[in-house]
Amino acid sequence: MKNNNSNINLKNLFKKVFFVDLVQGLIVTFGYTFSKTITLRYPDEEKWIPYKRFRGLHTLNRNKEGKELCVGCELCAKSCPTNCIKVVPAQDKTGKGIADRVAARWEINLLRCMFCGFCEDACPTEALKLGREYELASLSMQGQLRTKEELLAPQEIPVNFEGGVIVKARLGRDEDEVSVKPDLSVQKRWW
């Protein structure tokens, strides 16, 4: 027992005299110096593509024949906790929807929306889906109102793209818009 104690003391003395702990600390930081960075060079060179489950900007879908899936049932508007969705149903005989009832107007106020996804859950035809677009900043309040036509257009990231990766991107700037265009072919994960 006594021998053991003196052993420990000798060890501690050795550690103190030769600064073993300090050297170990230096080795740790030196290792990190040459490890891969976790920095995401976001607007300039890289962009994060979220997983499929991500709840971003809403998108209105069409079926395989290109007909609007939305039947203007207003369930999304009713289920919305913040009352940010406005649907005006209308009768339509031209066959642009899957039924003779379509949404004449479908508007969402993103300032009020909290991206809870209740509308998506309420939708009976799977017309409404929360997509993966998350760059929603705008220069005016008006820019936060999205209409049916805007939402019907397909989003930049395809629906079947797996996501959860960092892709190469390019920052595009012009007078009224700043956008980050992703290039889905070059993917990387830092972890």
């Binding site: 930081t29 990190y32 110096t33 490890s35 891969k36 960075t37 976790i38 920095t39 060079r41 300039d44």
Partner: peptide, 14 residues
Amino acid sequence: KVAGHIQVRLGPFR
């Protein structure tokens, strides 16, 4: 740069 790389960042880059 040393600070950045030790902290797994990049340091000044832009």
